[in-house]
Structure formats: structure tokens, C-alpha cells
Amino acid sequence: MSASGYAVLAEGVVKRYGGRKGAAEKRALDGFDLAVRPGTVHGLLGPNGAGKTTAVRVLATLLRYDAGRVEVAGLDVAREPRGVRGRIGLTGQYAAVDEVLTGRQNLEMFGRLFHLGRAGARRRAGELLERFDLVEAAGKGVTEYSGGMRRRLDLAASMILAPAVLFLDEPTTGLDPRGRGEVWDAVRALVAGGTTVLLTTQYLDEADRLASHITVIDRGRAIADDSPDGLKDRVGGDRIEVVAAEAADLPAVAKAVGRVAGGGLVVTDDTGRRVHTQVSDRVAALTEVARALQDEGIAVEDIGLRRPSLDDVFLRLTGHGTDLEVAA
């Protein structure tokens, strides 16, 4: 695909805002690195304001950058933006489709603007409507679409050229669980067709479900680059958590929980009457702890498994959590 062998390659990218007329300079990207292998889904994970959207806008030729090097689909973004535009698809944070037109009219218009010609645009629109399960709604105005349908139309519009690289900027933000599921299915289908996907998200579980590789971004810089499992291992993986009914039972609860602790620390939180520890086999751990507590006749208020959240990842990787305002 390119000399580097990567579908997307960013090296030391800097993007500055402000800094004029005495305004404080802000670095939205501050030496950002990213390497995405062809044919994979790569997650770009970070909280609001970490630089995810800026990164995608730079990669998709929408924003000029101040320093560094960016290569997408084998082309230098600064030198050949138009060539890059012919090889990428972009789905931004808002469904960027024409609200007034019908689904079919949208796809045909974008197809003609992608220079497929009239007949080519019509044929491609038909294919994409079918592929994204929008045939029935094709003749309806987009205003009548549900959130998930809009997103699917948006995805279809970014797939018109069957792009080598597809950028998805928080594609499920604001969707209900059903809409999220629809979008996830569509993304999986695209990758099966050979497209490389760069997906930004605030949700660790979304990156976990879709991506084979995750880059964590904080304050405009990549702070971790790993597989989802590797990342979770570094964060501490899944945890089992028991809330005791009586504070006096806490030592006994800690003992029961300790039986499944995979060598990690058993943490007792007195004020919350909580005991938690990291586990490897989720179901076995839950069963075993529940049985042990039952055998000893200890009453519990709550028992459950908790997956690490983005907050956990951040706390572990940066020590400052996701709330940048407080940390900065």
C-alpha cells in the first residue's frame, strides 16, 4: 500500500490553535504518533478534548497541521490532499447528510460529486442502500429516519468509493443501544470487505468490541498503543466487586474474594463496605465467590463484575482521570 506498509501513519504531528493577539496558544496535537495496519479496525480512545477529532480532521485533509508527517493510503496528506480525498471516507460526529433529500437522493448526489457519473452514482446508491439495509426507507426524507438509520446512511455515503481508509469519528455518540448495535454491525461488514477503519471513541467497550488495536490519546499525544487485551491487562482487567451488608463482615468478605484473586491485590474500601479484586475468569470467579459467601452465611448488598472503563484506563495510564479541567 505504501513504502511504510501502514494505511495511516502519523509522526510527531503538531496542531496549534490560537497564539495570536496575545491569546494563549493551545496545542490540540502535541507530537501525535499513530500507525494503522491495513485491513484492521484501529481504535483511537480518549476523553473529550484529548485531540481525537483534531487528529481525524488532520488525517482526513480537513485541517492543516503545523509540524510532523502524515501519510494516508500511501499518500502524503500535505502534498497530495486531493489524491488522499479520493481514497478515504469520513463519518464525522454528526450525520453529515442532507436532511431534506431522501436517502437515495443523498447517495446519488454524493456519488455524482465523487465523479462516478450519473449511471454509476445511481448503481452505487442502489448497492449501498441494500448493503446498509435502507432499501425500504430509500424514498423517505432523512428527517423521518431514526438516529441509527441516519448513521447508516452517513456510513453508506462515506463508502461510495469503497475507500481504502475510513475515518469514523465517534460514530455511536448519541445513539440508543439498538442504534449502536446497527452501526457496529455495519462497521464489521466494512472491514470484512477489506477497508481499514480508524475509529475514535470515548467508550472502552466499543473499542474493545470492534478494534484489534487501540491507541490511547491524552492532551494531543498518544500515551498507549496496544491490543484491547493488552490494554486491559495493563489497566487491571475485569474486577469482581462485593458490597457487604454489614461492615463487620468485611474481613470475611475479603477472605472469600481473596480465593479468586489472580495474584492481584484485594482492595477493601471501608467507607463503601466494598471489596474488589482483579479476576481472569469472570464467570468462575463470580460463581466461586457467591458460593463461598453463601456457605459462610454472609449477607451481601451487591455482588457483580465490573469491566474497566475509560476512567480506569486513564487513571492507570496518566494518574489524572478523564476530567482534564480538574487535572490541568
Binding site: G92, F110, L113
Partner: peptide, 14 residues
């Protein structure tokens, strides 16, 4: 501009 349609146009080879 607000709906991102202009950004979509700008990301296309038109």
C-alpha cells in the same frame, strides 16, 4: 456547516 455537510464535501475529491 453546522451539520458537517460542508466538511463532507471538503473531504471529497470534488
Amino acid at each position: 456547516a453546522g451539520k458537517g455537510v460542508i466538511d463532507r464535501f471538503r473531504s471529497m475529491p470534488m
